[in-house]
Amino acid sequence: MADNSTSRFQAGQTGLIVRIPEAEPAVRAWRERFDPSARAGVPAHITVLFPFLDESRIDRGVRSALADVLGRHHAFDLRFESCGRFPGVLFLRPEPDTRLRRLTEALTDQWPEAPPYSGKFTEVVPHLTIADGQDDAVLEEIEADLLSKPPFTSRVSSVDLLVHDGAKWQDRASFALHG
């Protein structure tokens, strides 16, 4: 859920993410400097679906459906050992990313009115943003630092619902994956 300023988000917007706490030691300082979503309260993560439904639409029925849809998917492991780029963006690449893609597909099948990134991209690439809106020299410096550290793995066992309160992202719920 990278953004160029916290004002880009509106109160009531929601997103579904997978937290990657194992990344924090390597990426926290970089994200605090170069990823506005970190300053807005979002931990190291991979976005599963953003934007999701407006908070006003998330009732007991939606929460139950989220638990059902996500609970059909098994927990899995990801490995992080390489970086990737979009224009002005550096990210850690989760491998394999197939199960992340399946989570996104399952959610958009259930809620077609909430396409990933509002339908801006033809392909959604799972990623953990480190820096957004930076020039190549900054991205190269960060990438060199990250690649000098050992690769790590992360167990994905839940998907979290975050809500923007107008200033920061707040935790609202966590939905367990099977097993």
Rank of each mutant, 00 (worst) to 15 (best):
L107D: 05
S7A: 13
E24L: 10
R31P: 06
H45P: 08
E113G: 13
H164D: 10
P151D: 15
D68C: 05
R19C: 07
A176M: 07
D77F: 03
D109Q: 14
A2F: 06
G84N: 12
D171R: 14
R72L: 11
L139W: 04
E143V: 09
D135G: 08
A65G: 08
E55R: 13
T14R: 03
T129N: 04
S174T: 14
S158E: 15
V18T: 06
D59T: 01
S157G: 14
R28Y: 10
G84A: 10
L90F: 11
Q110A: 15
S82W: 00
P94H: 03
L177V: 04
G71V: 01
A131N: 07
Q170M: 13
T153Y: 05
R57F: 09
L146I: 09
V163C: 13
V62R: 00
S157D: 15
A40H: 07
Q10Y: 05
R31A: 06
V124R: 02
R60I: 13
E143T: 02
V125M: 06
G12H: 05
S158T: 10
W30L: 12
V156A: 05
D35V: 03
G179R: 03
M1V: 09
P25Y: 09
H127Y: 02
S148R: 12
G41K: 08
V42T: 11
H74N: 11
A11P: 02
A26Y: 05
I17F: 02
L66Q: 00
S148W: 08
E22C: 06
G119C: 09
I20Q: 03
A167D: 13
D132M: 08
P94M: 06
D59L: 05
L16Q: 00
D160Y: 05
K168Q: 15
D35T: 07
G166Q: 07
A144V: 01
T108G: 12
V125Y: 10
S158D: 13
F9W: 15
R31K: 12
A75Q: 11
F9A: 05
L66F: 10
Q10A: 11
G71H: 02
L90I: 15
A23G: 12
T98I: 08
H127I: 00
V159D: 00
W30Q: 04
F76R: 00
L128G: 01
D132R: 10
H164L: 05
V163R: 11
R85V: 03
D135I: 07
A29T: 12
F86C: 01
A167C: 12
A173S: 15
R28K: 14
R101C: 12
T129Q: 03
D68V: 04
A144W: 00
P116G: 05
S5I: 06
L53T: 02
A65C: 13
Q13F: 03
I17Y: 03
G41N: 09
F80G: 02
W169D: 01
L66E: 00
T122M: 09
A29Q: 14
A137C: 06
I58G: 01
I130A: 02
D165F: 12
R155S: 07
R33W: 06
L90N: 02
D54L: 15
D109F: 11
L107Y: 06
L49P: 00
E81I: 02
R72F: 00
